[in-house]
């Protein structure tokens, strides 16, 4: 199925065609059995997905309808159990290991702005960094993408800041390869890139990879950037 045919099927099945376009498409459907088959395939998959979503939502609503008093009494029972059984369980709860994503969030701090001096936003770089400094990461990412396309400024810095924006926007899958590629280049940014790659791996629930990367990171004697944090993080993961 070509891209064009797929988009036509999608637009028709999702009700995005106007009447005239839909009517033309229906005429084609009547004459092209393969097209009709592709449309059925689209609809069958979509409808099965949506039916699954319907059941999941219904289940959630059923749970929300459980009387609050029942929940409160359950909570009271839990509190009472903790009080009765005491300190060891409380300690167990307190010492429960956080998830990779929680650790990534805990250790994430945006890389400092090494580009601008918070001056007027006259260039794309300044606009990007101004947004970055305000933690407006979506906007910063857009500006950084423009810089990347126009090949303006230090390509390494653009990659680093855009990856950090992606990480902050929970798009670790996109951030991780960019950061790994930057880490592999021997530049003054590779330390920082390695650190954020570790956080991206954690965010993506690739804890094993993150630990391996952390060990490699700490095995480099010259590494200074966030060294103590990295040691602390490795200990938390162990």
């Amino acid at each position: 199925m070509t891209e064009d045919v797929y988009h036509q099927i999608e637009r028709y099945a999702d009700g995005l065609m106007d009447r005239e376009e839909a009517s033309d498409f229906e005429a084609r459907l009547a004459q092209e059995p393969e097209l009709m088959e592709s449309l059925k395939h689209y609809r069958n998959t979509r409808d099965a997905l949506r039916a699954g979503a319907f059941q999941a939502e219904k289940h959630r609503i059923r749970q929300l309808d459980q009387p609050q008093t029942r929940m409160n009494s359950q909570m009271l029972v839990r509190i009472a159990a903790v009080l009765v059984i005491g300190f060891p369980i409380l300690m167990f709860l307190l010492l429960q290991r956080p998830t990779g994503a929680e650790l990534a969030e805990e250790y994430f701090e945006p890389y400092p702005d090494r580009v601008t001096t918070m001056a007027a936003e006259s260039t794309t770089w300044e606009k990007a960094m101004s947004a970055y400094n305000r933690e407006a990461y979506t906007q910063a990412l857009e500006e950084l993408n423009t810089l990347e396309k126009q090949r303006i400024g230090d390509a390494g810095l653009v990659t680093l800041y855009s990856s950090i924006c992606l990480l902050a926007l929970d798009s670790c899958e996109q951030a991780l390869p960019k950061l790994q590629s930057l880490s592999a280049q021997s530049s003054n940014l590779s330390e920082a890139a390695q650190w954020y790659a570790i956080l991206a791996a954690l965010e993506c629930d690739k804890t094993g990879d993150a630990m391996q990367m952390l060990e490699q990171y700490l095995n480099q004697p010259e590494v200074k950037f966030n060294r103590s944090k990295a040691e602390e993080l490795l200990e938390a993961l162990n």
Binding site: D47, A48, R50, A51, G52, F54, Q55
Partner: peptide, 10 residues
């Protein structure tokens, strides 16, 4: 208002 007949497909 649809419900899956065959839950395993979900």
């Amino acid at each position: 208002d649809r419900s899956l007949v065959q839950a395993e497909t979900g």
